[in-house]
Simulated assay, not measured.
Amino acid sequence: MINGKGLAKFTTLLDKAGYDALLVGPSPDMEYLSGLVLHPDERFKVLVCFRDGRLCAVSPKLYVEQMRNALGDAVEMVVWDDAEWFEKKTVAAFEKWGLRNGRIAVNEGIRAVDMLNLQERFAATFGDGHFVGEEARLRKDAEEIHRMRRAGQIADAALEALTKEIRPGVTERTLAKRLEELLLEKGATDLSFGCIVAFGANGAYPHYNGGGAVLREKDSVLIDFGCKFEGYCSDTTRTFFVGNPTEEERYIYETVLEANLAGEAAVAEGAAAQDIDRAARGVIAKAGFGEYFISRTGHGIGVAIHENPYIREGNTQMLERGMAFSVEPGIYIPGKIGVRIEDVMVLTDEGPEPMSRFPKELTVL
């Protein structure tokens, strides 16, 4: 189903920027506009959003039924097959739709090699259209916030169930797989990303992608995960301890918790994104761990797991009602430990609201 409000936002932004159309490949933009979540393979498939409000599509035969079911019969669709490949029919369609010598924006869902092919065959000026979707999705309405809230509730319930299964001898991979199962069992419609479970020193890799470590007594357990509910993401991180932590580990954890709470306390309409980063980073720097806080404090979230606004130093963007973003300070000491605590915050009509309610005090399992 076409998102009429979303399409209107896209066309307004295109018109303001002086673009005739936007090419939308498989991406959060495509999902936002149509609900389509397509496999990003080598076959060229695109929604063409025009500044006058029209929407057309180019599809390989392999995806026609899926795209037609989502877009309806009113959207004109050009279809190509593997024997001919996409260039000839796509160029002919662009000619028909009046795009020759026009200005065409392109989103991140279009492969660079496909764009190079189109540029060689079609006379138009192509430009970066990433800003269109980012701006259109930036401020969430009540329904979008409801979906994010529900995604957070599902995540909390899944993590609560998982904590009963965390015990020495289990592997990171086993817990990650089990958490993904629990998210779907609790009502998630999809995952936001592959769950991260990191034991001990593996937690010092912020985006750890291993899985073979076996949990030991006295290990820390960092869990970063999220799910989707009707297209909208959650994102939560908690760090636990198996057996009592050392005094140093306890100090690191309490520092990160204080930073997380300080960042969340700084969230307000009219604050700059960098103000949140400064509030959290200042706590960690004061405690003597500044060099081990190696990431930004947060990122926007919605249909995409990472989108505007980015909570980092240098971003003076003012926070507004409807914006949603993570607050996730961390301390990452190579070869030793990583601790991160993350919640998603949304600026609602009633003020800042966390989408996760899972306890944050130091927990020994």
Score class of each variant (00 low, 15 high):
N3H: 03
G6M: 08
A8Y: 03
A8G: 02
D15A: 15
D20H: 13
L23P: 03
V24N: 02
E31L: 09
Y32A: 00
L33R: 00
L33I: 11
V37G: 00
H39R: 07
P40I: 01
E42I: 15
R43V: 10
F44M: 08
V46K: 01
G53C: 10
R54G: 05
R54C: 04
V58Y: 04
S59H: 04
Y63C: 13
M67S: 07
D82A: 11
K88L: 13
K89F: 08
T90F: 07
V91S: 10
G102T: 13
R103T: 13
I110N: 05
V113H: 09
D114W: 14
R121S: 14
T125I: 13
G127N: 09
G129Q: 11
F131V: 04
V132W: 06
L138R: 00
E144M: 00
R147A: 00
M148V: 00
A151I: 03
A155N: 12
D156P: 11
A157N: 06
A161H: 10
R167D: 05
G169M: 05
T171Q: 11
R173H: 04
L175Y: 14
L175E: 10
E181L: 08
L183W: 03
L183G: 04
E185Q: 14
E185P: 02
F193D: 14
L215C: 10
R216T: 02
V221S: 11
K228W: 09
K228S: 02
E230M: 06
Y232H: 06
D235E: 11
T236Y: 13
N244T: 10
T246E: 08
V256I: 14
E258K: 15
E264G: 08
E264A: 13
A266P: 01
V267K: 08
A280T: 11
A280F: 01
R281T: 10
I284Y: 04
K286D: 12
K286Y: 04
Y292L: 00
F293K: 10
S295P: 02
T297H: 08
I301R: 09
H306Q: 07
E307M: 06
I311C: 14
I311M: 05
R312K: 15
N315A: 08
Q317N: 06
M318S: 06
L319W: 07
M323Q: 10
S326F: 09
V327C: 09
P329F: 15
G330P: 14
Y332F: 15
R340K: 15
I341R: 12
E342G: 11
D343L: 02
V346I: 03
T348I: 01
T348G: 00
E350V: 02
G351V: 09
P352H: 00
E361V: 03
E361A: 15
L362F: 12
L365H: 10
